[in-house]
Write a protein that binds this DNA or RNA. Structure first.
Lengths: 253, 253
DNA sequence: GAGTGGTCTAGACCACTTG
DNA sequence: AAGTGGTCTAGACCACTCT
């Protein structure tokens, strides 16, 4: 092969390029895409690689497939990346808003029973517990209460908690968030929520609890994020083949 | 080929069989699965087919993969099928509970502005609007308010709305639900909710709004389902590669 | 009936994990 | 260093859609 060495696989490059072509409106008039054969010729690869490309694009919701018919571009769907579902900063930026934060509390303390269980910690373990009010374009929308493993939380000292994306800074320091398990339910506002989010006590709030781990499955943090009900909604698209999830900012009512 | 003709593809059969072997605890002691090569020999297929099998199993959350290492079974994860996310009856049965329903209201009327927009209907269109209280093992957990296209709703007359799964009956009649878009948020209970769900007025409730379409993308129904906050939670598992969503019944508090 | 996507094979090389 | 999953090729046949 005379192709230069590449760290991202070919099918991924082709997928990204196709996704860009779709996003830039190349297939607006006629949504149907080139056939696998045509693309294999265009990109000078085998049909198998093109099929891998489409497998990826279908999994990420960019194209649809029906046996026998040309594939079609899914209009206007911009899927959120994993980081947008885990990092408030990333999510806000992807939504075109400016995120900020105000530290309410930061302490190093013994892990509670719940933290011990969810983070799989021994009885005596320590955690760093951080409560922040998160704002979108200056408006309070969420109270974030995160518990970090001790060796992760120890790094918080070097981070500007009001401005930086903790996720990004931790990644630079070697702690990459890669998998998450979220639970979404509804609760009534307690006193702290009511005060910080400027809602009535007992107002309905959307709660997202999340355990996040690194690529090896090591648990790194547990977070309990409580949103103003009028500021956010979760959106899910699914079919028998796949599921996609978005977290959406709601227009100010 | 001497293999008999088969309508479900080979890789799918192997995937189902493997999923069952995992579910029945065959890999409890050592979670690592056989290698692709071993499985290709066991099932007398090529490695490509086994890779397709695993591609499917990974997409549905049954196994994990790491380059270089043996694949591992994900313990105790039984992914919900699409129907479990759209049909209360299916969901309840999958969770091992007995679903039932009580019809609160059923009428044929002009589509509201919201219905016109969401179901892409003309101004003059009719819809069938059905409100049901849904129960899990006899306990009220959800108020379901569904608007059906006229030609779909007209079939409701022949369905036992208290017991049958509408989804199943409609499928028998040729209307198959295949894709859905859900929005999840929190609201305060109104009077009807409070009365039917036996909660205080203004209690926090989890609301799921959903537009469902058939395999061709034709919109069939719009539903607004409101759950008691202590009876259900949505769970999402995700990584950079995929997203999975579950709807979980909560243990009675 | 021609075109297109879905399935399957057989072999190759690479990147990463593990002993 | 051996084993394993990740990528890629080159062909084959089938099932479905479109005109």
């Amino acid at each position: 092969m005379s192709t230069p060495p590449q760290k991202t696989p070919l099918y991924r490059k082709i997928a990204d390029e196709l996704a860009n072509r779709i996003a830039s409106g190349e297939f607006i008039a006629d949504r149907s895409l080139p056939s696998e054969f045509e693309l294999a010729e265009q990109y000078q690869v085998s049909r198998g690689t093109i099929r891998q490309t489409f497998s990826h694009l279908r999994a990420t919701g960019v194209v649809t497939s029906r046996q026998g018919a040309r594939r079609e571009a899914v209009p206007g769907q911009r899927l959120q990346s994993f980081s947008a579902l885990v990092s408030f900063s990333h999510w806000a930026k992807a939504a075109g808003a400016t995120p900020s934060g105000r530290v309410i509390e930061l302490e190093r303390r013994r892990a509670s029973r719940v933290e011990q269980e969810l983070l799989e910690l021994p009885d005596s373990a320590w955690v760093y517990h951080l409560i922040r009010l998160r704002l979108l374009d200056g408006k309070a929308v969420m109270v974030e209460s995160t518990s970090y493993l001790e060796r992760v939380g120890a790094l918080l000292a070097g981070i500007d908690l009001a401005k930086d994306s903790i996720t990004d800074r931790l990644a630079q320091l070697g702690f990459v968030l890669a998998e998450a398990e979220h639970t979404i339910d509804a609760i009534a506002a307690d006193e702290l929520h009511a005060e910080l989010l400027e809602v009535a006590p007992d107002a309905p709030l959307l709660r997202e609890r999340r355990v996040t781990s690194d690529p090896n499955g090591t648990l790194l943090e547990y977070s309990e994020d409580v949103y103003r009900a009028d500021s956010i909604a979760f959106t899910m698209r699914n079919s028998s083949r796949n599921h996609h999830l978005l977290k959406n900012a709601l227009p100010p009512a």
